[in-house]
Design a protein around this nucleic acid. Structure first.
Length: 211
DNA sequence: CGACCGATCGTCT
DNA sequence: GACGATCGGTCGA
């Protein structure tokens, strides 16, 4: 098996979460749970820009038990339970006390596909295996018990496998499922790889462009 | 293929 | 007691 470079602390500890989100496209999320390794290339993600962001859990300085990990240091996972049945994973960025994060929304499977199919109870491989934030967590065995884990450790990390996504292949648009956020629901903070089959939904607008 | 809707439960008010 | 940063099934075109 080849050895790739694990993304280091300095990548996450930067201040521009929109830039970090764009750069995460093409990187590979790796998860080792109960000795089983699975991995997938990040093809879609969303940036959440802190306490001023009406779509973020921490809007208005809402520092609670649930959001506490978002306030922690960069390079950790913020994992929460949603809609009574799904686990969603965010990458925490910026610095302690500044709750920025990137929600991972879709992966293109790379390693451990049979393990992912088993967890997802799929008999046939199709694009729904790791499409959508809840689906990808289920496929990778990611659970709220890993909330707050370091992304520099041995269970969940992100690798640079040398895949470079050209700027013209990156599209952006409004974030999904945040209609309650008023004007902030329209901000183009969702990024995806153009045409990738694992992206969780078709673009809402043909006017989407990378700024 | 799009619109709709029920499932399901931890967290916060 | 209400409400989700969702998913998968169903229905109709």
């Amino acid at each position: 098996m080849k050895s790739y470079r694990k993304i280091e602390y300095s990548f996450y500890a930067r201040t521009n979460v929109l830039q970090i989100a764009k750069e995460l496209l093409g990187k590979v999320l790796v998860s080792v749970q109960e000795g089983k390794l699975t991995s997938g290339m990040i093809v879609e993600c969303e940036a959440y820009t802190g306490e001023q962001d009406k779509a973020a859990h921490v809007y208005g300085g809402k520092r609670t038990k649930r959001t506490e990990k978002m306030y922690g240091d960069a390079g950790h996972a913020y994992i929460y339970f949603c809609y009574g049945m799904h686990h969603l994973i965010n990458v925490v960025t910026h610095s302690r006390g500044i709750p920025h994060a990137v929600l991972l929304r879709a992966l293109e499977p790379v390693e451990g596909i049979e393990i992912m199919m088993e967890r997802r109870k799929k008999l046939k491989l199709d694009y729904t295996l790791t499409k959508g934030p809840g689906s990808l967590c289920q496929a990778m065995g990611i659970h709220t018990r890993q909330n707050g884990e370091s992304l520099l450790g041995d269970h969940i990390w992100i690798e640079d496998q040398g895949i470079k996504i050209p700027k013209e292949q990156i599209e952006c648009g409004p974030r999904v499922g945040v209609d309650y956020a008023g004007a902030d629901a329209l901000l183009p903070y969702r990024f995806w790889i153009k045409g990738n089959k694992y992206v969780s939904r078709r673009p809402k607008s043909k006017f989407d462009t990378v700024g």
